Lab assay of single mutants.
Amino acid sequence: RFRLSPAARNILEKHSLDASQGTATGPRGIFTKEDALKLVQLKQTGK
């Protein structure tokens, strides 16, 4: 289970993504908004 920032949680839910597909870069291993946006971008480019 990942620790998600509220913004990251919202983005992941909106795009039906799972945090385990990305890398948490925030302090103390928190999955940040920026991490979520990177994951969305990867999904949109098909990689």
Rank of each mutant, 00 (worst) to 15 (best):
R1W: 02
R1T: 00
R1A: 14
R1I: 08
F2Q: 02
F2H: 00
F2V: 04
R3P: 11
L4M: 13
L4I: 15
S5V: 02
S5F: 00
S5C: 02
P6Y: 11
P6Q: 13
P6E: 15
A7S: 13
A7F: 04
A8I: 00
R9I: 11
R9Y: 04
R9D: 09
N10P: 11
N10F: 15
N10W: 09
N10M: 13
I11L: 08
I11N: 10
I11T: 04
L12S: 07
L12Q: 10
L12V: 13
L12N: 08
E13A: 09
E13C: 05
E13D: 13
E13S: 07
K14C: 08
K14H: 11
K14G: 11
K14F: 11
H15Q: 07
H15P: 03
H15R: 00
H15F: 08
S16H: 13
S16W: 01
S16K: 14
L17V: 07
L17C: 09
L17H: 08
L17M: 12
D18E: 01
D18I: 07
D18S: 06
A19Q: 07
A19V: 10
S20K: 12
S20D: 15
Q21C: 11
Q21N: 04
Q21W: 10
Q21H: 10
G22V: 06
T23D: 13
T23G: 08
T23Q: 09
T23R: 09
A24F: 02
T25A: 03
T25L: 04
G26N: 04
P27I: 03
P27M: 03
P27A: 12
R28Y: 13
R28A: 12
R28S: 11
R28G: 15
G29S: 05
G29A: 06
I30E: 15
I30N: 09
I30A: 12
I30T: 14
F31H: 10
F31E: 12
T32C: 04
T32H: 06
T32W: 01
K33V: 08
K33G: 07
K33W: 01
K33T: 13
E34D: 13
E34H: 12
E34T: 08
D35F: 00
D35K: 01
D35C: 00
D35T: 00
D35G: 03
D35H: 01
A36W: 00
A36M: 06
A36D: 09
A36V: 01
L37F: 06
L37H: 03
L37I: 07
L37N: 04
L37E: 15
K38D: 03
K38Y: 00
K38C: 05
K38R: 14
L39V: 08
L39E: 09
L39S: 12
L39W: 01
L39A: 08
L39R: 04
V40N: 05
V40L: 13
V40C: 11
V40K: 12
Q41E: 15
Q41L: 07
Q41W: 06
Q41N: 11
L42Q: 15
L42G: 11
K43E: 06
K43H: 15
T45P: 07
T45W: 09
G46M: 13
G46A: 08
G46S: 13
G46L: 09
K47H: 11
K47R: 08
K47G: 09
K47S: 13
K47Q: 15
K47N: 01
K47L: 07
